[in-house]
């Protein structure tokens, strides 16, 4: 049996809102040691989502036996919208479940609402992603990266990211013209999350689809900072930290013909 209680429903709501536009169907793997893990690839096979909600993200978590919950995220999102952000949220599943029970408890009122979501058998490819050294890593405020991704998409379908020791440059060239935004590393002592940190083994220039970057920044509400790891001619990793766990996106780059 699985029983996971979140202190606030908002965490799972934000996670599902962050990924449901990229992947519609996915398997939630549940285990006592790892909590909930998900790997899912978008239909175009350009963007991969790797989610880990550790048991530490829950107020209470028990999973007697490893379980796979096949979920339609659009349907789960509809059910999660029934509860308030501050409610306790408990998800419950039997050992061979055909449905997931979702329970909201209002902390002030005596109101308990229960919903049952039908589960599905989902056959999905899993990619083997080894931990690897990256050429560079940038940590920056999540809202700032979101603004850049959204603004630059209005100029071009592609966004080039150029990292050097001294700066990170976002470059877009489109039909109406071009634009660039340059950020320099700095440390904000009073608000550490406002800092911009660059770690560099070697400079990198990579180009990504603006559409996919805009899918990724839907996770902005989850974390105050985003870490972007880049390697020449390889997919990029965008990581949003959860209170205990992470939401990672792997995005395949574009290459010049």
């Amino acid at each position: 049996m699985l029983e996971g209680k979140f202190e606030e429903a908002s965490l799972l709501k934000k996670v599902i809102e962050s990924i449901k536009d990229s992947v519609k169907l996915c398997n939630f793997n549940c285990s006592q040691s790892k909590g909930i893990t998900v790997q899912a690839i978008d239909d175009s096979r350009v963007l991969l989502i790797a989610l880990k909600i550790d048991s530490g993200s829950f107020q209470e978590f028990r999973c007697d036996r490893d379980l796979v919950l096949g979920l339609d995220l659009e349907s789960l999102s509809k059910i999660l919208k029934q509860g308030n952000n501050e409610d306790y949220l408990t998800i419950i599943a039997e050992d061979s479940p055909d449905s997931l029970l979702v329970v909201f408890e209002d902390k002030k009122k005596d109101r308990i609402s229960e919903f049952s979501l039908k589960l599905m058998d989902i056959d999905s490819d899993v990619l083997t992603i080894d931990d690897m050294e990256h050429d560079c890593s940038i940590t920056m405020p999540a809202y700032e990266f979101a603004k850049i991704a959204r603004d630059m998409k209005t100029l071009s379908e592609s966004l080039q990211i150029i990292i050097t020791k001294d700066s990170v440059k976002f470059n877009a060239e489109g039909q109406i013209g071009s634009g660039s935004i340059i950020l320099k590393p700095h440390t904000d002592m009073e608000k550490p999350d406002e800092s911009i940190k660059i770690e560099l083994n070697q400079p990198v220039v990579l180009t990504f689809g603006a559409k996919y970057l805009n899918d990724i920044v839907k996770a902005t509400a989850l974390s105050s900072t985003v870490t972007i790891k880049l390697t020449d001619k390889a997919p990029a990793l965008f990581e949003y930290r959860l209170p205990s766990g992470y939401l990672r996106y792997y995005l395949a780059p574009k290459f010049d013909d």
Binding site: D125, L127, T128, G209, A252
Partner: peptide, 14 residues
């Protein structure tokens, strides 16, 4: 125009 790559060009399908 740059060409969009596919993730399976970089990672193996398990």
């Amino acid at each position: 125009t740059p060409i969009q790559n596919d993730l399976t060009e970089f990672y193996n399908v398990a």
